[in-house]
């Protein structure tokens, strides 16, 4: 089929929207790894919890936007509780222990959700204002996808401002570089870690919230997202926020165009992209030498 400019523009928008979810999700993963050196295998689980939290919140308040904020706060608090009560005990141990803890949580939590909500998935409708598509001649402009791209920009800007213009953001960045020096300055690093983990988990929840109207909200919806968010982070470079952004956007476009041109390859395309990038640049696009 002919690849017209309308199709190319739409595919780019689709890829950007998909990339937006990847970017938000992987940014959280990257922050957690950069700050805590923890490979959060429960990241997809927090994404799933975000989707369920927004479902519950919409059921209670009926407003997508209030529900969105509530869901992020609830999941971030849950993440904080997880970090304080379980994860914190494993800092300073072999990296495999926190990894196994997160992995165990990712198996345990979907079963809890199954018990509470059942196996049939939950419906999260699109916010009314962004339902449907606008048509400009033969060009389709899907409203919700465009919203996702804008939201990604807002989130990244807010994240940049938080990291660079606030005290806590600068402390987080400093702790990422040299936690010993930060603690020597009299700053409670333990609390910084908790805030960093909550921030990362909150971003995972946001990704789950915005994905919920588009996909099936079921207990295992995060399984594949964990893997895919790791692919994004590996492509971008472990622990690099900029890398997560570029990696997410790149993968969004790869999936979008491969799905269109070679649908059979759509599921393996991201892994092929990762393989190619790692061959050319083993530390990822923005990764630091010796960290990958």
């Amino acid at each position: 089929m002919e690849l017209t400019w309308e199709i190319i523009i739409l595919q780019i928008i689709m890829g950007l929207a998909l990339g937006a979810i990847y970017v938000i999700l992987a940014s959280g993963l990257s922050i957690i790894f950069g700050l805590l050196d923890v490979l959060n295998f429960a990241h997809g689980t927090f994404y799933m919890l975000g989707a369920y939290a927004v479902f519950v919140a919409i059921s209670l308040c009926g407003n997508f936007w209030i529900a969105m904020v509530s869901a992020i706060v609830i999941v971030a608090l849950l993440g904080g509780l997880f970090e304080i009560t379980l994860l914190k005990r494993l800092y300073g141990t072999e990296p495999i222990y926190p990894l196994l803890l997160c992995f165990g949580f990712s198996i345990f939590m979907p079963d809890v959700i199954k018990l509470i909500f059942g196996l049939v998935g939950k419906v999260v409708e699109y916010p009314k204002i962004f339902q449907g598509a606008a048509f400009v001649g033969t060009l389709i402009l899907p409203k919700y996808r465009i919203f996702l791209v804008v939201l990604m920009g807002v989130v990244l800007l807010a994240l940049w401002l938080f990291m660079n213009k606030t005290d806590i953001g600068m402390i987080i960045r400093a702790a990422t570089r040299d936690r010993l020096m930060v603690s020597c300055l009299g700053i409670n690093v333990s609390r910084v870690w908790t805030v960093g983990f909550m921030l990362g988990v909150g971003l995972a929840a946001l990704a789950g919230v915005i994905a919920a109207p588009m996909v099936q909200t079921i207990p295992n919806m995060g399984d594949e997202m964990t893997v895919e968010s790791f692919v994004v982070v590996v492509i971008g470079g472990l622990g690099s926020l900029g890398g997560a952004v570029l990696g997410g956007l790149l993968l969004g476009q790869v999936v979008s165009f491969v799905s269109f041109l070679y649908p059979d390859w759509s599921n393996v395309a991201i892994f092929m992209a990762m393989a190619v990038i790692l061959v050319v640049r083993p530390r990822g696009l923005f990764g630091e030498e010796g960290r990958a």
């Binding site: 199709i7 689709m14 996808r145 996909v215 594949e224 165009f257 799905s259 269109f260």
Partner: peptide, 9 residues
């Protein structure tokens, strides 16, 4: 497959 929107065009 989770993204079917790519087939819409």
């Amino acid at each position: 497959t989770r993204d079917f929107s790519s087939y819409v065009p």
